[in-house]
Design a protein around this nucleic acid. Structure first.
Lengths: 347, 347
DNA sequence: CTGTTAGCGCGTTCAG
DNA sequence: CTGAACGCGCTAACAG
């Protein structure tokens, strides 16, 4: 038998309004009345019905997270941070997965007219001005992760710098034939991180005095298999690259697959650098540019919570650091095998 | 400006009741009226306010998932399945993380008196009769994953058989000194899978005619590091085991750590079998008992949806198959190195 | 088949 | 500082 605000009011000998005020500890209630009400609340085990509360206030006591491809390791890591962060403040997290470009606007519509959440975190999706305005009309000021928009808080990394970091590592090792493997852009989602990392690649190459080689720059729909295919093509070139910078760890694993299929040793015959530092990167010994995925979720949760509590808060732009993690997939070009692992293929 | 059911009713020249019926396509509405209403709905871009709907119906249009340790790889895999499954039917998933035993009942209370979801999936938590009754009073019949209770649908695996499968693999390889490393039970959560896998271990040992050795059976709080510590103790025994069956892949990785720290070769000096087949297992080359984690989430979503649509549906008990995945961490005891990887330590 | 109406549980005026 | 009353948007029960 659910106990309502009326039960509490009757039992405490006050009106529902007073109980409501106590529960929202907003208005000034006399200490005596407050204590009395709280006693009854405890005695009856009263818990406000969130549906009623939601209807009266216009928003549900949940936080919505819109994120493309929840099954991707990088998305998982971010969601972990988000869930962890919101658990600390007691907010259930509703997850909206975007598997196709049109899902994004569908979910946005759900947020604005269907169930209105307390707040929202939007990951990796470009927020056009109309989108921002629509959300704002509904009283929603989402926190962006891996994306930016005027007037909204965001948690990002410097993808250009990250791409340059990876590429510079390779050129410093002595590589001149460095390939780039990124996401094919025209997929309708408008993701920009791969493009930015590509920019960083170009910059670092220029800084190292390496002439760009168009044949070395390839893109493919995101995925391990597609990356493997592209790498096969790369390795079949008359003058194949000695190193590959992949715009994500998933793609870097595909590069590794292609190298293995061709009988190339890594890093002796081919150096590989990834991006993200997802869990498997450590196990694969992959050299990569680490971005704080878990922390990005945590930070977004913290910022959103702060904005919910103080609506007038100024937008915050948080740039998380990237860092090169050197493991076992990078070495100078043509370097001798560290151990005679394959006697049948002498260097 | 939000458009309400009244706007639609006025515009369509019908009553709100009729609009409601059309939106819930439950009652019989004349095709003509229905079409007329739907036209207006489309024209006005009407989307029902879920808060109002929730208040009137007594439940929110979301599905709650209560799961311990969301950050664990196995939980992640299950959640992926759940989110994927519910996305297909358009239900936002609210995630409730359980990090401490008391969180479970807190979340349960939230479901029954706070925000009442359309349905709930509860993972790995034992549901006592009182808990089930409380939920039932609130009209909630949760679907259980990795747990069972009378009158509730559940998605499980045969942990005893899984434990036996792992152990038999080891004895068939010729191992007689086989250790078991599981979760320390009295942690307040009441998880049973590790205990069941332990049973399977004992059964398989008996079937192989191996005398149980208490010193070989150890438990520790779940974790890679704690598993590593326990394994150190195991390996320091006068007559150390030649094989270890760990009740989870995470713990198996800890076993591997301990072996490496002691300079033991795997599988030549020590065979290791894990359980779950989480993502990193493949990369670690870990032999393990695979359970369909992703599928368990998908299946739970499917069953819950069926029960929401047909309340009188009989409970379903789905047993998912387990399967031994043989990789590179198991071999006959004292087997010679397959490759002379460590000349400094001749077999 | 459709209109009317009474709440669902709570927040929030407005008086006092 | 507190009580009374209204309405949030919708569903469902009841007439017709």
């Amino acid at each position: 038998v659910p106990v309502t605000i009326r039960d509490v009011a009757r039992e405490a000998g006050v009106s529902v309004g007073t109980v409501s005020r106590v529960m929202n500890d907003s208005a000034q209630v006399s200490p005596h009345t407050r204590a009395q009400v709280l006693d009854v609340v405890a005695a009856l085990g009263y818990q406000p019905n969130q549906s009623g509360r939601a209807l009266a206030r216009g928003r549900l006591p949940t936080v919505a997270v819109i994120v493309p491809f929840v099954t991707h390791p990088s998305a998982i890591a971010r969601i972990r941070g988000l869930v962890d962060g919101f658990r600390r403040v007691g907010h259930p997290v509703s997850i909206f997965d975007v598997e196709m470009p049109e899902h994004a606007d569908e979910h946005l519509l759900t947020l604005t007219s269907g169930l209105r959440p307390e707040g929202a975190v939007i990951v990796s999706l470009p927020m056009s001005a109309p989108r921002v305005a629509t959300l704002a009309d509904a009283g929603l000021r989402p926190v962006l992760v891996d994306a930016e928009a005027d007037g909204l808080s965001s948690v990002v990394i410097d993808d250009v710098a990250g791409g340059a970091l990876a590429t510079a590592h390779l050129t410093e090792l002595g590589h001149r034939r460095v390939a780039f493997l990124g996401d094919r852009e025209p997929d309708g989602f408008g993701f920009v991180s791969s493009v930015r990392r590509h920019e960083g690649y170009r910059e670092a190459l220029a800084a190292a005095g390496v002439t760009p080689e168009p044949a070395y720059e390839r893109t493919a729909p995101h995925g391990r298999e597609t990356a493997c295919e592209q790498t096969r093509a790369l390795l079949a070139l008359p003058e194949p690259p000695t190193a590959v910078f992949a715009a994500s760890d998933t793609q870097a694993l595909g590069v590794l697959d292609a190298a293995a299929a061709r009988g190339l040793r890594v890093p002796e015959d081919l150096s590989v650098v990834g991006f993200d530092d997802i869990d498997v990167a450590a196990h694969a010994g992959l050299t990569t540019v680490r971005q704080p995925l878990f922390e990005s979720g945590l930070a977004a949760a913290r910022i959103l919570q702060a904005e919910v509590e103080e609506a007038s808060r100024a937008p915050e732009r948080l740039v998380l650091p990237v860092e090169l993690v050197t493991r076992r997939t990078t070495a100078p070009p043509g370097s001798p095998a560290r151990s005679a692992r394959r006697e049948d293929t002498p260097a």
